[in-house]
Design a protein around this nucleic acid. Structure first.
Length: 275
DNA sequence: ATGGTTGCTTCGCAA
């Protein structure tokens, strides 16, 4: 007796799962990343702060668990990678019209189980340090270039997901102590305006779409009470295009890796789509 | 109270 659930059935929609994780050193977190891939089987996992050059990236170890990788790295700082079940196509490693010595952007088309392509854009937005610092001037310039790049990307790819470490809380709901953080880096009105201007290009905060309540974060400082006191920020975001949001089915924060021995200070944020 | 912790082929800096 034939089954309608046969995996070869054409036009059948499967789940397309993406995730973002600032690993704060791929050297230290390699085993945790591979274990996470094996357990969760995402179609694409975007990493930030790999903190190594491509020559040192563990392409082979990741391949052994069934994943293909693309990476843009540098020594000591920054660095991004996309790990995917199906090989990345049309890889881009630079924002439009923006010279950047820091490795913070990588994008590619990733196919779902039915062959449909999703444009996956992985970013590590500059931290900015403090609003009166030179690093904040760089953060603003970088973010403006991202907005311009995303305007073009969205016009070319209706199914686009922009995800990564944005180093910006969208609102006070994403901050454990809005009074203490008021006006500070990650929580300032200036940065939130930058983010909402980017969203106005046609991107939607997918975690918040499925989780209207607060008190859930993606980063907790290593210092002090940190994770134990849930003193966190939600700065790791999955932003879906309108067409992709229509096909989204779930989004969640996986706090399990933050509880591990020697954790990253960030934990993975996941979204799923019917693709 | 400008503290505290982690990672870097470290010895101060970025987060």
């Amino acid at each position: 007796m034939s089954s309608e659930s046969d995996s070869t059935t054409t036009n059948k929609k499967a789940s397309f799962k993406v995730a973002t994780w600032n690993v704060n050193s791929m050297r230290v977190r390699e085993e945790q990343v591979i274990a996470w891939l094996n357990e969760h089987q995402p179609d694409a996992l975007c990493l930030q702060e790999i903190k190594m050059v491509e020559a040192d990236f563990p392409f082979e170890a990741i391949k052994a668990t069934g994943y293909s990788s693309i990476a843009l790295g540098q020594k000591t700082y920054n660095g991004v990678a996309i790990l995917s079940k199906r090989e990345a196509q049309n890889v881009s490693t630079a924002l439009d019209d923006f010279e950047d010595e820091q490795r913070r952007y990588i994008a590619a088309d990733i196919a779902g189980a039915n062959g449909e392509l999703v444009r996956v854009v992985n970013v590590y937005v500059p931290n900015g340090q403090a609003l009166d610092s030179d690093k904040f001037v760089y953060k603003q310039a970088w973010f403006k270039a991202l907005r311009k790049t995303m305007r073009r990307t969205l016009s070319e790819h209706p199914l686009t997901v922009l995800l990564g470490d944005f180093n910006i809380t969208p609102s006070d709901l994403d901050c454990h102590d809005p009074v203490a953080w008021r006006g500070k880096i990650h929580c300032s009105d200036t940065e939130r305006l930058m983010l909402h201007t980017l969203l106005s290009e046609g991107l939607y905060d997918t975690y918040r779409h499925f989780n209207p309540q607060g008190e859930h974060y993606s980063w907790w400082d290593y210092r002090g009470a940190g994770y134990r006191a849930n003193a966190g920020l939600r700065i790791d975001l999955v932003l879906s295009s309108g067409e992709l949001l229509k096909r989204s089915t779930a989004s969640s924060i996986d706090e399990v890796p933050r509880k591990h021995e020697r954790p990253s200070d960030h934990t993975p944020v996941v979204a799923e789509y019917s693709i």
